[in-house]
């Protein structure tokens, strides 16, 4: 996602990471009880992943997160004035960048009077990588691993 931000920085595109609640709290990174805990975990994310995008903290009650759907790793694209141009229940860089390019192209053609927008929906796909996800949850703590892998419905 940082690479997408870099590639589109000269097209008046800003990219931010909005820090929410902990999706899979464990013994090493527990749920937020105050904003200092939330700030600390956000710094861990920044330092661990090397994320370069601006990190913005939601409030402790998740006001922004809940207003936008409360999904654990969603991405939204907004146009000028807050026009919602894309929302995805999961973040995949390929889908985000393709949608961003599509949005930019459509907006440019709309300005020229060549295109009009319409509403559409579709199902997108992401790579399943249980090993990588389990490895990350192990860093969060045994509880995080157990809460997800031991209790998820078969076949999911």
């Amino acid at each position: 996602m940082d690479a997408i931000a870099d590639r589109h920085a000269d097209q008046a595109v800003s990219s931010v990471f909005i820090y929410t609640r902990e999706a899979h709290p464990g013994e090493n990174y527990r749920h937020h009880t105050d904003m200092d805990v939330k700030r600390h975990h956000a710094r861990v994310l920044r330092d661990d992943t090397g994320i370069k995008r601006r990190i913005l903290l939601d409030d402790l009650e998740g006001t922004v997160h809940q207003a936008y759907g409360c999904l654990p790793n969603m991405t939204w694209i907004f146009g000028r004035g807050g026009l919602v141009m894309y929302k995805a229940a999961w973040t995949t860089p390929e889908d985000v960048e393709a949608s961003l390019d599509y949005a930019i192209d459509g907006l440019e053609r709309r300005v020229k009077g060549a295109k009009l927008p319409f509403y559409s929906e579709r199902l997108s796909w992401r790579v399943r990588d249980d090993d990588s996800f389990r490895s990350h949850l192990e860093r969060c703590g045994p509880q995080a691993v157990s809460d997800f892998f031991d209790k998820r419905p078969k076949g999911s």
Binding site: M1, I4, A5, H8, Q11, A12, V13, S14, S15, V16, F17, I18, Y19, T20, R21, E22, A23, H24, P25, G26, Y29, H41, A42, V44, L45, D48, R53, H65, Y68, L71, P72, N73, M74, T75, W76, I77, F78, G79, R80, G81, G82, M85, T91, V96, L100, A103, I104, H136, L137, C140, A144
Partner: peptide
């Protein structure tokens, strides 16, 4: 979004 397009990813460390 007054400056242009905005990509907003939501998430956490865990």
């Amino acid at each position: 979004w007054s400056e242009g397009l905005v990509i907003a990813e939501f998430g956490s460390f865990t």
